[in-house]
């Protein structure tokens, strides 16, 4: 359950930043748009912060400190109160998302009925958001 090796995330951040930067560069050369410049800027920032974080982690901490940080991260990850907090916030988020989706379906369905693919997608999302909790509840009910 615990996977708190931040190096992986830093590397991912660097890669994502580089990809975004290159994409922005290609788009800039083709279209010279503001979005391309924004993508380049975000990409560069991501790459730089990722590199800096990696550097700080490699240079600034001793192996003992790194082990202590990993231990602390594992505690935070597996702490039962933190897990309960995540579960509660996920539940409330789900309720809010259901309501938001309902409102979205009503708005799209009644105000913009001619966008029927959008209506279908929104209804599908709403169905998914309503069905998944039931399915997972049934799965977990068998395990507990």
């Amino acid at each position: 359950m615990t996977d708190k090796n931040p190096v992986k995330y830093y590397l991912l951040e660097i890669l994502a930043g580089l990809a975004l930067f290159i994409l922005g560069l290609i788009l800039l050369l083709k279209f010279n748009s503001a979005a391309a410049r924004a993508a380049m800027m975000i990409g560069a920032t991501l790459t730089l912060t990722g590199l800096l974080s990696l550097l700080i982690r490699r240079v600034a901490f001793t192996p003992q400190e790194k082990a202590a940080m990993r231990w602390q991260a594992a505690i935070e990850e597996n702490d039962e109160r933190n897990i309960r907090l995540k579960e509660k916030s996920a539940y409330i988020t789900l309720q809010i998302m259901r309501i938001a989706l309902c409102i979205f379906v009503i708005i799209v369905g009644f105000i913009l009925p001619f966008y029927w693919p959008l209506v279908i997608m929104a209804v599908l999302l709403l169905t998914l958001a309503s069905l998944l909790p039931v399915i997972f509840a049934a799965i977990y009910a068998r395990r507990m």
Partner: peptide, 20 residues
């Protein structure tokens, strides 16, 4: 092996622990 916040919440009575 819990967070400091958990101890704080337990002491304040804001959080009830699991049986474990």
């Amino acid at each position: 092996a819990v967070s400091r916040q958990t101890i704080g919440s337990l002491e304040n009575g804001r959080y009830n622990p699991s049986i474990q």
